[in-house]
Amino acid sequence: MEVTTKGMPYEAFKDNEYIEKLADELRANGTNVVVGSLDKLINWGRSNSIWPLTFATSCCGIEFIALGAARYDMARFGWEVARASPRQADFIMVAGTIVHRMAPVVRRLYDQLAEPKYVIATGGCAVSGGPFKNSYHVLKGVGEIIPVDVYVPGCPPRPEAMIYGIMQLSRKMRVERFFGGVNRQENREEFLRNHPIDNTEE
């Protein structure tokens, strides 16, 4: 099964083995025809309509604006409906450094996103802490507090890299089973169990 998205040939993607593995998992136990086709339809819709949350902390955010502008135009793929409210967004693009004071805020934003939700860590800082790794106030990657689906390295990544990252997310969505929970949530549930919020009430 060639999992691809419109606008880029299958061979051009770099990590096809990973997606193949996910696709195999998806097909492992066979599928009811009705549920299967319904899944396909839903996944077609989901993977073609990925709305980002407008969330940016530093330089990567400016590149994210550039991604929306005329030259890179993410509207071509239907990603331009950037929602300011996390309830209505599909994924959070962590664009920029996450520091200690911001960590609970990012976690809350993640919790406020409506299911199904995804995370793209954009830029060196969100991936691993980047140039500020040794600081007393910087997280070594946003993966410490929320589960990340796609990592986009760079400082800041070029808009092309961001497009590639979101396309990869779109491909990941296609090899999920919406009914029956294959390839989704199992790692996440565990992650969230291991990173509890100490005190949810203000």
Binding site: V99, R101, M102, V105, F132, S135, Y136, H137, V138
Partner: peptide, 23 residues
């Protein structure tokens, strides 16, 4: 403030001068 405070000034104290430039 401080939601993106990265402690750059403190980081500089451990680095050589050419290394501080990129901050």
């Amino acid at each position: 403030l401080g939601y993106i405070h990265r402690g750059i000034e403190k980081l500089c104290e451990g680095l050589g001068y050419p290394q501080t430039l990129h901050f």
